[in-house]
């Protein structure tokens, strides 16, 4: 076994390893497997841009040419939560939108982190109104808050760096137990479906008759 882990830091390296090391002149990284994984994870965060309003534009600016989030290995923005591990909530979360935020968060695979970008997301901000959720932490847990209306892209990049620190520091819990953030509750009937929207769609289609009272087209929603 030529790999030395940091879990046994006190033990002497055996002779063979030392000789191997001298041969490759230090081109070997020692570390615990979890640290190595964390390092890989830290430098390849996949953000899920949950852009809601104005802050989303600054988030786009952050990815674009001048600020270039790719320098931090986090430019692979994906709009599907299943591929992502960092959720950047950017914008005002309204009560009508809240369920979507929750659902998207739940669908992200573990481990996951959340950045609340902008004062609206953080506290409701300047919109102390009837329709706005006063802070997204009512709904999902947040790791880093970024104040500002909107925060400059530099501030959000700093938040991404903070997340990177956290990725390195965090304990590596066995899978399935890592539920400090809650977990995806798949097809739990308790969870309920999306609120049905009576769209009033009454399209006439040739050769197709909607059975009277049939709710087929209403069932088309993704029901979690």
């Amino acid at each position: 076994m030529g790999v030395k882990t940091l879990d046994q830091p006190d033990q002497e390296l055996d002779r063979q390893t030392r000789e191997d090391l001298q041969m490759v002149k230090g081109g070997v990284i020692f570390g615990s497997l979890s640290k190595l994984v964390d390092m890989a994870r830290k430098n390849s965060l996949w953000p899920m841009p949950f852009g809601l309003s104005c802050c989303a534009i600054e988030m786009m600016a952050m990815v674009a040419s001048r600020y270039d989030l790719a320098r931090f290995g986090a430019e692979a923005m994906r709009f599907t939560p299943r591929q992502c591990d960092l959720m950047i909530v950017a914008g005002t979360l309204t009560k009508k939108m809240a369920y979507a935020a929750k659902r998207i968060y739940d669908q992200m695979p573990e481990p996951k982190w959340v950045i609340a970008m902008g004062v609206c997301t953080t506290t409701g901000g300047m919109f102390n109104a009837y329709s706005v959720v006063q802070g997204i932490d009512h709904i999902i847990p947040v790791d880093v808050y970024v104040p500002g209306c909107p925060p400059r892209p530099e501030a959000v990049i700093y938040a991404v760096m903070k997340i990177q620190d956290q990725v390195m520091k965090e304990k590596w819990a066995p899978l399935g137990k890592r539920s400090h953030h809650g977990h995806y509750r798949g097809r739990d009937p308790k969870y309920g479906a999306l609120p049905l929207l009576d769209t009033g769609v009454k399209a006439e289609v040739k050769g197709y008759q909607e059975e009277p009272g049939s709710p087929t087209w209403r069932k088309g929603y993704y029901t979690g």
């Binding site: 009508k96 929207l197 769209t199």
Partner: peptide, 29 residues
């Protein structure tokens, strides 16, 4: 990428038979 707009589409294959936009997800009063 234009914000929180919801559109309910009624499709026959890939053809849109009708669409109902649902707005209000960013109603901030």
């Amino acid at each position: 990428t234009h914000g929180v707009l919801r559109v309910v589409l009624k499709l026959d294959g890939e053809v849109v038979l009708s669409a109902v936009p649902d707005v209000g997800y960013l109603h901030r009063g």
